[in-house]
Simulated assay, not measured.
Amino acid sequence: MMNHSAIAAIACLVLAAPALADAEGTAVGVRPDASSQSGAAELVLVVGSDVSVGDTVTTGPSGHVQLLFDDQTRLVVGPGSRLKIETYLLTGSGADRFAVNALGGTFRFISGNSPKPVYSIHTPTASIAVRGTKFDLTVGGGQTFTMLFEGALTQCYDGVCVDLEDRCDIAVTGGGLADLYGRSDERHPPAAAKFPLPNIQAAFLPDFRVPGAQACLTASPDTTGGASVTTTETGSPQVRPSPQPPELPLAEPTPQPLPQAQPVPLPQRRVP
Results as ranks from 00 to 15, higher is better:
Val130Asp: 13
Gly141Asp: 05
Asp70Tyr: 05
Ser242Leu: 13
Ala6Leu: 14
Gln72Thr: 12
Arg108Phe: 01
Pro267Gln: 02
Leu250Glu: 10
Leu148Pro: 07
Thr224Tyr: 02
Gly151Cys: 08
Arg187Phe: 04
Phe107Glu: 03
Asp169Gln: 05
Met147Glu: 11
Tyr119Val: 07
Ala34Thr: 02
Gly175Ile: 12
Ser228Ile: 11
Tyr181His: 14
Gly60Pro: 05
Phe109Ser: 01
Val100Ile: 15
Pro198Cys: 11
Leu90Ser: 14
Leu177Ser: 08
Ala251Phe: 11
Ser236Pro: 02
Gly226Cys: 15
Gly141Val: 03
Ser184Lys: 09
Glu42Thr: 15
Asp33His: 04
Arg31Pro: 05
Arg183Ser: 13
Gln143Ala: 10
Glu233Tyr: 06
Arg187Met: 08
Asp50Leu: 08
Thr232Trp: 04
Arg269Val: 13
Glu150Ser: 11
Ala213Ile: 10
Asp179Lys: 12
Pro211Ala: 13
Ser38Leu: 13
Leu164Asn: 12
Leu258Tyr: 09
Arg270Ile: 14
Asp96Ala: 07
Gly226Pro: 00
Gly104Glu: 14
Thr73Gln: 05
Cys12Pro: 00
Val57Ala: 05
Val51Thr: 09
Ala8His: 10
Thr146Tyr: 06
Pro259Thr: 03
Arg240Gln: 10
Thr26Phe: 08
Ser62Gln: 14
Met147Cys: 02
Ala40Thr: 12
Ser35Gln: 06
Val46Leu: 02
Glu247Arg: 14
Gly140Asp: 05
Gly112Glu: 09
Pro115Ala: 00
Gln238Ile: 14
Pro243Leu: 07
Leu197Pro: 12
Val76Gln: 07
Met1Asn: 07
Val160Trp: 01
Ala178Arg: 00
Thr154Lys: 15
